[in-house]
Amino acid sequence: ISSGAIAAGLAPLGLRRRPRDLAHQQAAAAVGQGLLMQRYSELFRERGVLAGQVLLTVEDVTRQSSYTNALRTLGTMLRMGVLPIINENDTVATHEIHFGDNDRLAALVAQLVRADALLLLSDVDSLFTAHPDEPGSLPISFVPDVESLKVDTRRVGSNIGSGGMTTKLQAAQIATAAGIPVILGRASRVDEILSGEEVGTAFSPIDKRRPRRLLWLAHASTARGALYMDRGAVRAVTQSKASLLAAGITKITGEFVAGDPVDLVTPAGEPVARGLVNFDSDQLPAMLGRRTSELAAELGVQYEREIVHRDSLILLNHTVV
């Protein structure tokens, strides 16, 4: 996964720093993408490797059909001996450019192809307890559980790149949840990292890989609405791993159809899970707060089922902010 299209286009356009407005960012990306890919092609050609360009946006992996197509395309390229050079399609992306999502995109692709490992390269040696320039900031060499990690990543880095340590930690969350180990380190020390030397920060994967469909749901889907739960339903979903029933829903927002991703939120509106809903949004208002048996008796047996089944939902994590 390569960043750099916008950065590569700055000098030809006479820009000294990354522009803030979307139109100029996209213009820089349009100029820079060709230059970036030309350089990659030259470098890999010298080593006898054929490289191919794949441009994606986060939107390309938020719909399961596109997600499956991306997997098929990457698999075919690899079988044909082509090294995919993947970049976010900054020339057509909208809000994704602002969030520096190449880190998240890298984790999603690693998850997609069931990679052996994910290497995140940065301009710092490792993860630190705070910004490396802050007094008392200490390096972290190993993170056994990224879900419980608490570090200060709020300080912004360079004026050229996007994202920063926050997006790298989010990427580490995605990859380790898929059972993929992650190493974060300085780009100039990549040879040492690949040689297995103890540099950078290693993130341990979870013991058991989650199904690809649930990882897609948690990290690559876009919620089409929200289901507000009462406190009892929140406890049932988050602590007892139960399905969400109509009786535990107090309010809905958004417009969606059966099979769409929706957020399951607390009474205060905090998302705690995401799942695939079994009913259209216009069906649910008449069902809220009612027992399943009551709905089946009044509306028919097709209503005798969960609003979101436990096998089609995944809990969300909010430790990295």
Rank of each mutant, 00 (worst) to 15 (best):
N278C: 10
Q33Y: 01
D116M: 12
H24G: 11
L22G: 06
V146R: 09
D207A: 11
D263H: 05
D263A: 10
L22A: 15
I140M: 11
L149G: 01
M229K: 05
D133T: 07
A220S: 14
N102A: 02
N102S: 01
V156N: 15
L22I: 15
N87C: 10
V109A: 04
V320E: 05
L120F: 04
R104P: 00
V301D: 15
L244V: 08
V301G: 08
F142Y: 04
T153C: 11
M229T: 11
R235Y: 00
V124E: 02
A296C: 14
L50H: 07
A51H: 08
V272P: 00
I140K: 12
Y67P: 03
A178V: 14
E255M: 15
E270R: 07
T94L: 06
S41E: 12
A117P: 01
S41V: 13
L78Y: 06
I85V: 06
D123L: 04
K208I: 10
T222Y: 07
E42K: 11
I174P: 00
A175C: 04
D191Q: 15
L313G: 03
L13V: 03
A23P: 00
R154P: 02
D191V: 12
F203G: 07
T222W: 09
I97T: 07
D133M: 05
E198C: 03
S126D: 08
T250A: 10
V321C: 15
T176D: 04
G300I: 09
L56W: 00
H95Y: 06
R189T: 05
H219D: 09
Q239M: 05
M287S: 14
L227H: 04
L295H: 01
L13H: 03
L36W: 02
Q26K: 11
E298A: 07
L184H: 11
P261N: 05
T57G: 10
S281K: 15
D311H: 11
D133E: 07
A93V: 12
L194M: 05
I206L: 09
V277G: 08
R189H: 07
A296L: 07
D103K: 05
N87M: 05
G75R: 06
G200M: 11
L78V: 10
A242F: 13
S240P: 03
A223F: 00
T166Y: 07
I85E: 08
T166W: 12
L316M: 09
L78W: 07
Q33P: 00
L108D: 02
L55T: 13
G164S: 09
V92W: 03
Q283H: 10
A268H: 13
S66I: 08
G225S: 01
T129R: 07
Q33H: 03
I307Y: 02
